[in-house]
């Protein structure tokens, strides 16, 4: 397999390294706020990858929703709640060895399958999905799951309220 050093490849390389680094930092960071920032970084890099794939709409949505709304909400949540800096008890080394092996096996399996069977991809049809078509299919073909998603959001909201509400008077 040969790589062509086009601008696209370099951009993809940088973006994917950024995304992976963000994810690794998120897991290794000790402070919650650092975790949230690294996660935002990962979301942002993924938006860049979407852009490379010519899914502009998705890229914009990714930045708006994930990098913007979700990350900001998380930061607010972190800042408005009290945090005790706690030393986490270190996980036993056996535990981490076993989880490393399990994840390694899964990763190996995925990579093995992906490299064993190269997909012959046709040239993608460009500009096939406009925002209008997207909206059309959401509100026509997928209207039932769409409505269900609104129930899902309601459930999430109710759940967040009842689990977080402080019950004062007794």
């Amino acid at each position: 397999m040969s790589f062509q050093f086009s601008g696209e490849f370099i951009a993809f390389f940088i973006l994917s390294v950024m995304a992976i680094c963000g994810a690794v930092f998120m897991i290794n960071a000790t402070r919650v706020i650092h975790m949230a920032l690294s996660l935002a970084f990962t979301f942002f890099s993924i938006a860049g990858i979407y852009l490379l794939l010519e899914a502009e709409f998705l890229a914009v949505i990714q930045i708006l929703i994930y990098t913007g709304a979700v990350s900001i909400l998380m930061l607010f949540g972190i800042m408005l709640t009290k945090h005790k800096e706690e030393e986490q008890p270190s996980i036993s080394s056996w535990h981490s060895i076993i989880s490393f092996c399990a994840t390694g096996a899964l990763f190996g399996l995925l990579i093995w399958v992906i490299y064993r069977s190269p997909l012959v991809s046709q040239a993608p049809q460009k500009a096939a999905a406009t925002v209008g078509q997207l909206g059309g299919s959401v509100f026509k073909q997928y209207v039932i799951p769409f409505e269900l998603t609104s129930v899902l959001l309601l459930v999430a909201l109710v759940g967040a309220v009842i689990l977080a509400k402080r019950e004062g008077k007794k």
Binding site: P145, L152, V155
Partner: peptide, 28 residues
């Protein structure tokens, strides 16, 4: 409702939304 949707759909999106509705309600 989530469980009922899960059994009466043959589309991955609806199946997944039903599954999540069931799971999220159960977590709470």
């Amino acid at each position: 409702l989530g469980a009922m949707v899960m059994v009466s759909s043959a589309d991955l999106i609806t199946l997944f939304v039903g599954l999540e509705l069931l799971s999220l309600s159960s977590y709470i």
